[in-house]
Design a protein around this nucleic acid. Structure first.
Lengths: 120, 120
DNA sequence: GGATACCGGTATCGAATCTATACCGTCCGG
DNA sequence: CCGGACGGTATAGATTCGATACCGGTATCC
C-alpha cells in the first residue's frame, strides 16, 4: 500500500501516534469499549487497578486523538458515556490481536523468566 | 479458544506481559529485527532517537522474557548480535499490524487533534 | 428537609521512569 | 602511539505515574 510514514524516523508523526497507542491504559480502554459504550465508573470497575486520574487522562488523550467520544447524557440521573469512534473501532483489530497474544503467551514468558532467573 | 488469562484482572500475569509489550521501544525493536539479526549499533542507528541506555534496557528486558537472543560473536572484530527468538517472531504479526495501523492513520489523528485544538 | 450515597471527576505529593549527556574499556588499523 | 568503532555505564534532570484525599452536583431514603 506504500504509505508515506515510517515509524523508524525520529521526527515522523507516526511516533506520537504509536506513543499514544502504547500508553499504559489505551489497550485496556479500547478492548473494554469493544462491546459498546460505557460510563466512567463502569470502565473504572471493568479495568481493574486503574485510578480515576489515569482513566480521566487516558480518556481525554484518546478523545483528543479522535479515538473515543464523550457524551454527557442529560437524562435523570445525568451521566457520561464513552464510546469508540469509527477511528477507535478500526484500532480494535490490531489491539485485540495484541491482547490475545499476551493472554495466550503468558506461560511461555513465565517459563523464560524463570529460566533466566535460574541461570544466575 | 478460551484461555485462562484475562488482561482485565488486576492481578493477572498477562498484565505484566502487556506492560512489557507496551513499553516505549519494544515495538520498534521487534519490527526492526523483522528482517534478520542486528548488532547493537545497527539497531541504534535504525531506530532513530533511541539512546544507548534505553536500547540496552529494552533489549535486556526482552531477553529476560525470551523475546530476543543475544549472542557474542568472537570473530575479529568481535561483536554482539541480537535476533528474535521463536516467541519474539510470533509477536511480530500483532505488532506489525499495530505499526501499520499507526503509519496509515496519521492523517486521521492529526485531523482530530487539529479539530480539537480549534474547538478551544 | 436533612443525611447519605453515587457519579465523574481534581488536587497534591512522592516514587518510579525516561532522556540527555558524558564517559569508558577493549579491540583494531595505520 | 593515535584514533575510531563497538557495546555499553554513570549520573542528573525532566517527565510521568500511582496512591490518597477531596469535591460539587444529583437522587434517594427517612
Amino acid at each position: 500500500m506504500g504509505n508515506a510514514y515510517n515509524v523508524m524516523a525520529a521526527t515522523c508523526p507516526s511516533r506520537t501516534v504509536l506513543h499514544r497507542i502504547g500508553a499504559r491504559w489505551t489497550v485496556f480502554i479500547v478492548n473494554a469499549l469493544d462491546h459498546g459504550p460505557m460510563r466512567f465508573t463502569e470502565l473504572k470497575a471493568h479495568i481493574r487497578g486503574i485510578t480515576s486520574k489515569a482513566l480521566t487522562e487516558t480518556l481525554r488523550a484518546m478523545e483528543y486523538d479522535g479515538l473515543v467520544s464523550r457524551t454527557e447524557i442529560p437524562a435523570h440521573p445525568p451521566h457520561v458515556e464513552y464510546a469508540l469512534t469509527d477511528l477507535g473501532r478500526s484500532l480494535l483489530t490490531p489491539l485485540r490481536a495484541v491482547r490475545e497474544w499476551a493472554e495466550s503467551h503468558v506461560p511461555d514468558i513465565e517459563r523464560a523468566r524463570a529460566q533466566a532467573d535460574a541461570q544466575r
